[in-house]
Design a protein around this nucleic acid. Structure first.
Lengths: 89, 89
DNA sequence: TCCATTGTTCTATGATTTACGAACAATAGG
DNA sequence: CCTATTGTTCGTAAATCATAGAACAATGGA
């Protein structure tokens, strides 16, 4: 639980999650994040290891998606309330 | 938003919040936290500055309480989902 | 085969965080 | 006035984290 909350408590990572909530199935390079790609890779890993997202390799890139069902099963309503409170992108 | 999530992402602080959710109006010394009192004071401050709790001085001690209404107004459902997902103390 | 694209991994650095003890302030009680 | 209680603040040490650049691996296209 604390791991998920911590993963969501960073502005860059929360931006990633919000983008994925609007339209999933996006490659890492499509996020326009204000950090270097090595830093972005770090944030994707934190989200992945916290169980918030999953990454599927496809060609030279990774397709990211939110693990909505797993999160809703473990922490009902949490992701929804976070996304609703932060508003659209 | 990220400030609240961060405040809730520490085990000690989450324990404080859960205790206050069960029965509010408790002084700092009544929590049996596994840290020194200076460290506990730090955690109470993080929660206070994130807007999660409020502390009211009363004699030599501080009475803590959850800022439920403010939190529910700013982030509807967030605190409830966190408390529900973590279960009872 | 050669090159571009995509993202990871490694290493380093600066900032933040958690932790503790000691000293301090404020209050209450004797 | 003296002491105990409660919690804060200060100084510091250790750990963690965010960040970036360089090198690397894997894939796909020319």
């Amino acid at each position: 639980m604390t791991g998920v909350l911590y993963a969501l408590s960073d502005p860059v990572r929360l931006a990633i999650v919000k983008h994925l909530a609007e339209d999933g199935g996006k490659a890492c390079g499509t996020f326009c994040l204000p950090v270097a790609k090595s830093t972005a890779s770090h944030h994707f890993r934190v989200l992945r290891e916290a169980g918030v997202i999953q990454m599927r390799p496809e060609g030279t890139q990774y397709i990211n998606s939110l693990r909505r069902e797993d999160l809703d099963a473990r922490f009902p309503g949490l992701l929804d309330s976070v996304l609703r409170a932060t508003g659209p992108i």
